[in-house]
Amino acid sequence: MNYNWNWGILFEEPYFDWLVSGVEWTLFVSAVAWIIAFSLGSIVGVARTVDSVPIRAVATAYVELFRNIPLIVQMFLWFYVVPEMVPDDWGRWMKRDMPFPEATSAIFCLGTYTASRVAEQVRAGIESIPVGQRAAGLAMGLTTVQVYRYLLVPVGYRIIVPPLTSEFLTIFKNSSLALTIGVAELLYQARQIENYTFQGFEAFTSVTLIYLVLTMIVVALMVSVEEKTKIPGYGIQKDK
């Protein structure tokens, strides 16, 4: 195989800076998208367990809609289609004045998509609590809101910490799709280094290692969170 190895290139300017800024964008986009995914997913997930039929239907529709369209198509919809579908003033603002249009679109896309997956976990967590507990809460005179507030939500969340970990890893891996609309995240930078220097092996190897290390750090952090939050005797079958 004829290939000129040059690992040093990764530490030369500007390529090293590109990698660093790629890591920063990947982490930033994933973290902000996760905040959206977690809050919106919690609301949708709880909504799927309530008694009201219309609320449940809306929440189910949300999950089915976002789950059955490939993420890359959703990226394109958020970036190219949404600005055309909103009122003209908003569209103009989104195209002209919105800060970091690519990254903002990517964050909303990843956030709303992952919210549908988080919602499924939240629902599973709440549904795994024996029905008797909800009944007991109501029998004690708690309102439905209080049953959720003090019983179902706190217990449900502690049960689903492990699957939520893998959802966080999913958002972090999926953030690489942001490159299709031009966000300069980690994988984007690897391709850019490949294009400029033809040192594809080095660029892709370094990015692969960075992803592996970041994943390991997240997993290690979450294992300790899982230890702290787990309720003895409860738990969905761990998917590991």
């Binding site: 890893l169 891996k173 999926n174 953030s175 690489s176 799709l177 490159l179 994988l187 690897a190 391709r191 892709f204 990015v207 692969t208 992803y211 592996l212 994943t215 390991m216």
Partner: peptide, 11 residues
């Protein structure tokens, strides 16, 4: 499972 599919496709 630690890598994005996109990265594998590029590789």
């Amino acid at each position: 499972r630690s890598l994005p599919l996109l990265l594998v496709i590029f590789w």
